[in-house]
Write a protein that binds this DNA or RNA. Sequence first.
DNA 1: ACCTGAACACCGTTCAAGT
DNA 2: ACCTGAACACCGTTCAAGT
Lengths: 243, 243
Amino acid sequence: VIPTTSDTVSGARRGPLSRHRVVRAAIHYIDAHGLPDLTMRRLASTLGVEAMSLYKHVSGRDNLLDTVVEALLDDLYGHPDVQPEAARDWRDYLRRVANGVRQVALDHPQVFPLVATRPPAAPWIRPPLRSLNWIESFLRTMESHGFGERQSVDAYKAFTSFLLGHLLLEVAGRQVAIGPEETSRVDGETPRADLRGYPHIRDMAGLLHEDTASTEFASSLENLLRRLATMRDGATLTEAPVQ
Amino acid sequence: VIPTTSDTVSGARRGPLSRHRVVRAAIHYIDAHGLPDLTMRRLASTLGVEAMSLYKHVSGRDNLLDTVVEALLDDLYGHPDVQPEAARDWRDYLRRVANGVRQVALDHPQVFPLVATRPPAAPWIRPPLRSLNWIESFLRTMESHGFGERQSVDAYKAFTSFLLGHLLLEVAGRQVAIGPEETSRVDGETPRADLRGYPHIRDMAGLLHEDTASTEFASSLENLLRRLATMRDGATLTEAPVQ
DNA sequence: ACCTGAACACCGTTCAAGT
DNA sequence: ACCTGAACACCGTTCAAGT
């Protein structure tokens, strides 16, 4: 049998296993079935292989999950839109990175919580910009646009907090219900909970249901950019010592 | 044998099991050993009981984790500092809630990621203020201080994004290394990674290591309060339709 | 060189049985 | 009424063995 490279049928084998193929399959599996359903045995079976074969390429399940996170961030790091050279100024750069990370989160809503919560390798590495490449690139770009060292680091901290809060909440809202639930609800009506005793929630139910994630994100990002501009021009986030 | 209520020895039994005791024990266990180590069997054994007994009080492990999150938020909800009546104005209220949630996060750094990432019961319920009681209380308080319905909901969204981003990153920085690592490092020196190729990170290593979480949190909170004040006085976060 | 069978020490969860 | 023993269908991971 000649192995085909275009065969994507579940359980199909196409060439030898590789670390790259294992990680790609893991991302695909989580996207399709959710993190809790990912087991070494099931992942192996989608690759047409036994679980033990995976251990030639990752050192265990935890390492696999870390590698998944790393792969997603490395892909984005290589994307032309987020290259520092592509940006007109630091605002443009931050908008590009923000939208790039957001796109990753929206493309992989089931994986993003992993980006947010896998324990970072060092305490100063802040999700979601959690690779040395990203941090180096970020700091270099800010400095090249007039941010001092302290301001660049403060900007890194503020920017990552902003991204994490907004994107984690945005993907949480898109999270599919846990488990193989009865999806047989007939109409589009929300199965409204019993809101007796919660009159304000009931009154504002329409507003609460509105999906404003995109405008929220954009508006909060612009606010952050104004704040960073102020920081750059003298004020500090963390009260620089009056040496 | 007369059961004692003050006995806290591991494996001790004190009176009959109850849902409350199970949940309390779970919080304590996660605080002490981390979430991955929490199993139904091990939790049961700290209560001097077999795993199967837990199923009389929670419907399974997932339900236990949801209940843990709920318990933490209910405790805070009852705290005198965060009662709407205790606050002088809406700014004071938001500062009290922000600091209250932050204290919960710092007291239970291993549990807080659960508050952030357990799938909420409805898409409009936003961690970390993820109970109907909290949402109702928040919306009522904002409205009573001159926020309109849309502004109150926008404030809820902006406030939760702020809390989640900052607190998740703050507890991530405090996360103990995974597993029973060799903690036998002799001196206080950070085991500095090899930073060849990352000159900016190397140059700013000191700043990156500085723990500025408290000032960051306070400064970002004050910025949010200014933004919300602007919103209250006419501007909207989400571009109200020009009906 | 690459993959597997069989085994080990666990899981969560069920159910009929004990006291 | 409350807890348990034994069992089931899984896990992640190891290691010697297959091809």
